[in-house]
Nucleic acid binder design. Structure first.
Lengths: 126, 126
DNA sequence: TATACGTGTAGATGTCTGTCGACATGATGA
DNA sequence: TCATCATGTCGACAGACATCTACACGTATA
């Protein structure tokens, strides 16, 4: 067992006794209770989808693109580029992330690529 | 005028003519239309608050902490530490971000620091 | 009051990601 | 078919951020 693992095991034991004092329970270790519950949540598909969506909306420019789409229903890539003030490469990068997260949908018409909010993007943000 | 600025001005002009062809309008440049609209949105307090909240929820561990708080109503720092499986320093760091974004509230009782969801955190995530 | 304890803070570090320039791709039109 | 155009993709780089260790600060308890 490495030094790191010994240190981690010790930390875990300390945390366990702390939680025992807090809850007043005599359980061998309360840590697994919280850890397992958290792990179960983290594995759920719904949580994973929420995490992906939250990560996609974390960037201010992507959030701005979504806000613009809420007002216009449909925008082509160059219009979004004009709004965000970045290169088309960056626009493509951001819209790809939003698309993969299920926030927006895209459709190609001729040379132009149009983006709109996904159906289930009803509420939430300005 | 630097090379970069000349390049940027040229890009802007290209984008403007592109948008003219798209919209069929004869405006000197359509770019300011989208840019100004986007800038107006980006300045609004509501957008800024949404951006801060989105950024706070972007990290998977913070989202997990929020999910745990939705089930327990109130958790102390060490319980969150057990759930997330990180050091207490990292927990403190994350909870500070969530607090500043208005997602959670904190209250100190003796040695223990308790966290709960902010009042207006009714819906949204699992 | 001295010690143990729970938590916040500061600095260092490794990883992630937003951004750009350059090139590739698919569509339109002469 | 070749040129032009709108957009996607790739590689590189700088800045942001998550995480840790070490230390500081308040609180409770002997």
């Amino acid at each position: 067992m490495s030094v790191d693992m010994m240190s981690a095991a010790k930390d875990l034991a300390v945390l366990g006794s702390r939680l025992e004092r807090l809850t007043g329970e005599e359980a061998d270790c309360c840590v697994p209770l919280y850890r397992d519950e958290a792990a179960k949540i983290a594995r759920s598909p719904r949580f994973r989808a929420s995490a992906a969506r939250a990560r996609a909306l974390a960037d201010e420019r992507r959030l701005l693109a979504v806000a613009l789409l809420r007002r216009r229903a449909e925008l082509c890539a160059c219009e979004i580029q004009a709004g965000l003030g970045v290169t088309h490469a960056t626009v493509s990068h951001h819209m790809r992330i939003l698309t993969k997260a299920g926030v927006v949908e895209s459709e190609r018409r001729g040379k132009w690529m149009y983006y709109r909010l996904s159906d289930r993007e009803g509420g939430g943000l300005p």
